[in-house]
Amino acid sequence: MAECTIKNQIRTLRFMAGEMTQKELAERVGVTRQTIMAIEAAKYSPSLEVAFKIARVFGEPLEAVFQYTGNDTGI
């Protein structure tokens, strides 16, 4: 499976949010713990909806949680 080019700061943000567990985050976002585990390990890129929900849980803008690391310029 190709490594996805979207990196994230979920682990750090969970730590800063009082050691929030993956299970707790999963419940608040409405996905399974395994999905959070996969997103956190950059093995799965979430949909925009889930990405926004995760950012909202931490009270951060989307780009503070997810960063696109691909080197193509787009357009």
């Binding site: 499976m1 490594e3 585990m37 390990a41």
Partner: peptide, 9 residues
């Protein structure tokens, strides 16, 4: 596929 995506790499 579930195992591939949820294991830590």
């Amino acid at each position: 596929r579930n195992r591939m995506v949820t294991r830590y790499g």
